[in-house]
């Protein structure tokens, strides 16, 4: 779990908390690769995905370490501008990733908070970070307060009517995906119950497919969205 910030060594002691909790030492380059993948997955998946906070925190640590070092370089040093550019690139991925998650949290706040509470009750893997969950609850609270205040002046509406059918992500929306390894027997959602089709994916093959056919594969890192 711990993201230890290294100081120029290649290996970073980071364990990506998958179900099998073995220590996987990742190089910084691999951490960046995973961050990029998480960014794209989050960007294209209709639902909010399990958070990747270990990777985010690890990279943020690397960035602040680098920025500290950069302060000691003179601004004429041409290496400094290259380092700065890399830092800017990494910052963009991280902030864009986090922004995308916030946008989803806001758009689907009622269903996301509800699902997260269910996961928590069932001791399942939580999707949001603590901070995101706090944000989600506070955001939901702010909407509720705003509308409850308004609703006092509107006749004809039950107190919770306005949020009883909240917006939910369209899980059958179509996405482009790439198989990271060979996957057999992906069940295609054909929109009707009587037909069932299975597809095998070769490693590296690219497809367009409805998200709900592969959502689990995305979460298991067998398929990534592109």
């Amino acid at each position: 779990m711990d993201a230890v910030n290294n100081s120029g060594e290649d290996d970073i002691d980071i364990n990506i908390d998958d179900s099998d909790s073995e220590e996987i030492p990742l190089t910084a380059a691999e951490v960046i690769e995973r961050m990029e993948e998480a960014w794209l997955n989050e960007k294209f998946a209709p639902e909010i995905l399990p958070n990747k906070s270990e990777i985010v925190d690890c990279l943020l640590g690397q960035i602040s370490y680098m920025e500290e070092n950069l302060q000691n370089l003179s601004s004429n040093d041409f290496q400094k501008s290259l380092h700065q550019m890399e830092v800017d690139r990494l910052r963009f991925i991280i902030t864009s990733y986090l922004r995308t998650r916030l946008e989803k949290i806001e758009t689907y706040v009622f269903s996301i908070v509800k699902n997260e509470e269910e996961r928590s009750e069932n001791n399942q893997l939580l999707y949001l970070t603590d901070n995101e969950l706090q944000f989600a609850k506070a955001y939901k609270g702010s909407l509720e307060q705003h509308f409850e205040e308004l609703l006092r002046f509107w006749p004809g509406l039950g107190p919770d009517d306005w949020k009883k059918d909240p917006v939910v992500p369209n899980m059958s929306s179509f996405v482009f995906a790439k198989a990271k390894s060979a996957v057999e027997g992906v069940m295609l959602d054909e929109a009707n119950d009587d037909e069932e089709a299975l597809v095998d994916l070769q490693s590296g093959s690219q497809i367009i497919i409805s998200y709900n056919s592969i959502s689990q594969l995305v979460k298991n890192d067998e398929v990534c969205l592109i």
Partner: peptide, 23 residues
């Protein structure tokens, strides 16, 4: 709410998400 969230990201006093909007 948003400011509080931004301050909470990472371990170094937060990340301003309102910048770095473009590659």
């Amino acid at each position: 709410i948003l400011a509080k969230y931004m301050r909470s990201v990472g371990e170094d006093g937060g990340v301003n998400l309102a910048v770095d909007l473009h590659p």
